[in-house]
Design a protein around this nucleic acid. Structure first.
Lengths: 340, 340
DNA sequence: GCGATCTTTTGAATCGTTTCATTGTTACGA
DNA sequence: TCGTAACAATGAAACGATTCAAAAGATCGC
């Protein structure tokens, strides 16, 4: 009872050869009803559970897919993760999840771990610019799909959402509702998503000669970071307040909102309009329901798995870069000001 | 270049025996500087990556820990997951994450998968009453720690938060601020946490002769479910509205809040006080900052890993049930009404 | 009853590690 | 120079599955 039963034990117990047991497990219709039944009974009686390491060693690859995201706590990734898991389950694979937390070291650890596990392939939302590390993966022949980042199609497949378009949508919407002094709140522009969203916003602002865009740096992408940016704004005089704020994600926006509304000195959207990005579940239930940019996260996860399957199956892989278009969701936080 | 290099290739390339390569990998100081260097160079040149399946097959167990949660999207679990991952990483293990989504079938799949992977042990937040399935795990000798659920100490270790105490805290707080017609909003009471929180609330209400507690069923534990309960309340006349609502979690509470405030017919906390559970990040940034019950989630994850390690290491395991006490967080949603 | 054909079962070889008893090498004191 | 101890390196065996060529058994027509 101390050691777990092996396929050999099952074979002995059912008085058949090991090959037969293996066939029952993998090719049930190669084996007669009678013996199948006997083997299954033995499996049950011994509580046999297949040792996947041995299986994997023999067949040469696992049935798992590695997925490395920047932050599981971020609802955007949570949603991607879940849809990827579902899509993987449909094709009989399991997902190993790693959270790099924007840390290149942790990311590297997970890449190593997953390689040792001989995952079928890797979905990764990479930290910063890691072209060399990714090239290494490519050399080693690990099928890899970049998530939420556009890739050179000669090297990798990728799924992404057009962040420039999203940024443009958000800023254009603020402009369309009459705002002219815009501010962009976002973490380090070394993060590609942030940079692209800002770029899109700039593009929109350029279309209006009298509009300006100020960039406010935040320490990360959390509610707290947003709150400290908000506090900073509150400390400015009313005159210097922008009349439209675009945050690089909803968490930031909620933080800013919280800070502005708690002081009761500024009203949203009358004094300042606010729009976020991601359209997380909480956007709709914020102090003032938050306008946002919605990304098709379920589609992202599913498509990523599909692209990976393509790579795994074909040996001379044709890479594809799939780009989805985000969508504007208007709520109260950007309602047109009452008058003038 | 097509096949990945094995330890044997490395041995040949470095002109040493396979055992030596293995020693370089696992017991670096059993081997001389000179050969170590040579082996490491060979590893580098061939791009060798250890095959963990083979290693695992030989040593008999993996370096991974299975973790099955009810819902990764739920901030409570996200936090537990993260702290468990960190704690596991410290001791050189990786966490395989599974999301059962409250579905017994998916849970069973993950349990099977993880058993095939020969995980060191299992942390599980089980779906409903699964004593038999868990007993099976115990028979098979898979060290298991229950998360967010109290266990019979003769069978399993567990980490949990005292939900009865939490429910009491919440209801007591509503009573202390003068509310008397209380309502409890919660998913099916077949969920243990929900039942316990309700029980605790009942205990508090019994202490006040003139207080009543009404139970409102919700379809699950999401913002949406909360919204539909809220809509139902709005449709009732004002007279029939409770003056204090305790929701089994923050998502529900945010949904209820959203519904009540959108109609502008009821004010929180003047007409009705609202308290949630979990103190998720968004509680503080809700329409009306939400009072809640905070659970020590990081501690939960960390402790779960510690208990598991204990089980893995000692062969005659002494199970422990660790219970943490939750904490009341008061915000505006339960502020005392202006005047009687 | 026999050969041909088809189905079922067999079991040795294999995957890539780790382990460990054995062999080889070096250093040093007598 | 030799013996011994300490240290390094060796390589066969083992882990538990899958695979596949070959053997065994069943079925059928004549």
């Amino acid at each position: 009872m101390n050691r777990t039963a092996s396929i050999k034990d099952v074979a002995t117990h059912a008085s058949v050869a090991v090959g037969t047991v293996s066939n029952v497990l993998n090719y049930p219709d190669r084996v007669s009803e009678r013996t199948k039944e006997r083997v299954l009974r033995a499996i049950d009686e011994l509580g046999f559970v297949r040792n996947d390491a041995a299986r994997q060693l023999r067949v040469g690859h696992s049935r798992t897919i590695g997925l490395i995201v920047l932050d599981v706590g971020n609802p955007f990734f949570t949603s991607v993760v879940r849809s990827a898991e579902d899509a993987a389950a449909l094709q009989g694979s399991a997902v190993l999840l790693g959270d790099s937390g924007h840390d290149a070291g942790r990311e590297a650890n997970y890449i190593d771990l997953f390689q040792e596990q001989r995952v079928q392939g890797l979905l990764i939302s990479p930290v910063g610019d890691v072209t060399d590390r990714l090239d290494l993966l490519r050399e080693r022949g690990v099928p890899t799909v970049l998530v939420d980042r556009l890739a050179d199609e000669s090297k990798f497949s990728s799924v992404a959402v057009d962040d420039d378009a999203g940024g443009y949508l958000a800023a254009r919407h603020l402009l369309d509702t009459g705002r002219r002094q815009l501010a962009f709140v976002g973490g380090p522009t070394s993060i590609r998503q942030v940079a692209d969203r800002l770029e899109g916003a700039r593009r929109a602002v350029k279309e209006e000669p009298d509009a300006t865009l100020e960039v406010l740096d935040s320490e990360g992408q959390t509610v707290l970071a947003g709150r400290s940016v908000g506090d900073m704004l509150v400390q400015r005089g009313r005159a210097e307040l922008p009349d439209g704020i675009f945050c690089a994600n909803d968490l930031l926006a909620l933080g800013v909102m919280q800070s502005l509304t708690m002081t009761h000195t500024f009203r949203i959207p009358e004094d300042v309009a606010l729009i976020g990005y991601d359209d997380i579940d909480f956007a709709v239930s914020a102090v003032v329901p938050l306008s946002s940019i919605r990304q098709p996260t379920e589609l992202l996860g599913r498509t990523a798995i599909e692209l990976l399957s393509e790579e795994v199956e074909s040996q001379n892989p044709v890479h594809r870069a799939v780009v989805f278009t985000p969508e504007l969701v208007v709520r109260q936080s950007t309602a047109a000001p009452a008058a003038g």
